[in-house]
């Protein structure tokens, strides 16, 4: 892993991601979406920061809830139905 990090050239090579850590990229993705969406949606920009924080949290919370739901279906319900 250290060797991969040393060989990594930002913006040219794909970022080395330790196994299972890719989901952490959800946070900057949700933040970027909220920053742009709220910039065109809001008329009153005084509420902007609060609205961006709220939307980012909502996206992450919904995605986590969906992940838990799908994990329950795939990991628990489907094997149960399959006998």
């Amino acid at each position: 892993m250290i060797l991969r990090l040393l060989a990594y050239t930002p913006f040219l090579d794909p970022m080395p991601m330790p196994g299972g850590m890719w989901w952490l990229t959800l946070a900057p993705l949700a933040l970027g979406i909220a920053v742009v969406y709220k910039a065109i949606k809001l008329d009153d920009m005084r509420r902007y920061n609060k609205q961006v924080a709220m939307m980012t949290t909502q996206i992450i919370a919904v995605m986590v809830a969906l992940a838990i739901g799908i994990q329950l279906v795939v990991g628990w319900l489907t094997p149960l139905l399959g006998g």
Partner: peptide, 26 residues
């Protein structure tokens, strides 16, 4: 101007985030 800056920052954050994470091959 403020709205434009926020849009620019958000879109470019995501686009350069794409190149940072996936490399230029993305």
């Amino acid at each position: 101007a403020k709205r434009g800056l926020l849009i620019g920052a958000g879109v470019l954050w995501l686009f350069f985030g794409a190149v940072l994470i996936g490399g230029i091959d993305s």
